[in-house]
Amino acid sequence: MFYAMRVLIGQEKNVAALLAQSIKHEDTGISAILAPESMQGYIFVESDKMLDMRHPALRVPNLRSLVEGDVEFDELKSFLNPEPAMVNIIKGSIVELTSGPFKGEKAKVVRIDEAKEDVVLELIEAAVPIPVTVKGDQIRLIQKEAE
């Protein structure tokens, strides 16, 4: 069975590693711990037993609580093979920046470096068109190709 656990945001990987250490010599039934990059504040645990948060091995710093109910395996499948960030983005696409100093700005794609997953953008609303290079996962597609 799969369970979701709430953890402190930003500490997902640390908690997963600490939890793995902590359950090493305990019989908790846990066989795998998953900390997907796209899921902030949660980790997933695979166990063949019911998890009891009162178990001393589950007392790990920054681990907040167990989410009630179990998670279906199909729901976790999408986290296992994360799609490349830039599948639909082509030269000339209009995108929105989702993080960094230009968060929320719209920009046009000038060049794509698929090997590095980098995208060179030109901000639409800027007075002077300056090329900005960002990672492919920092943008969201708005319009596939500008007319």
């Binding site: 990987k13 066989s31 795998a32 998953l34 990059e37 695979e46 063949d48 499948k77 986290f79």
Partner: peptide, 17 residues
Amino acid sequence: SGLIVVTDPDNSKLAEE
């Protein structure tokens, strides 16, 4: 990016996948 810690690969569906 992303992390999976496998402690018991024989009994894990995630590890099998």
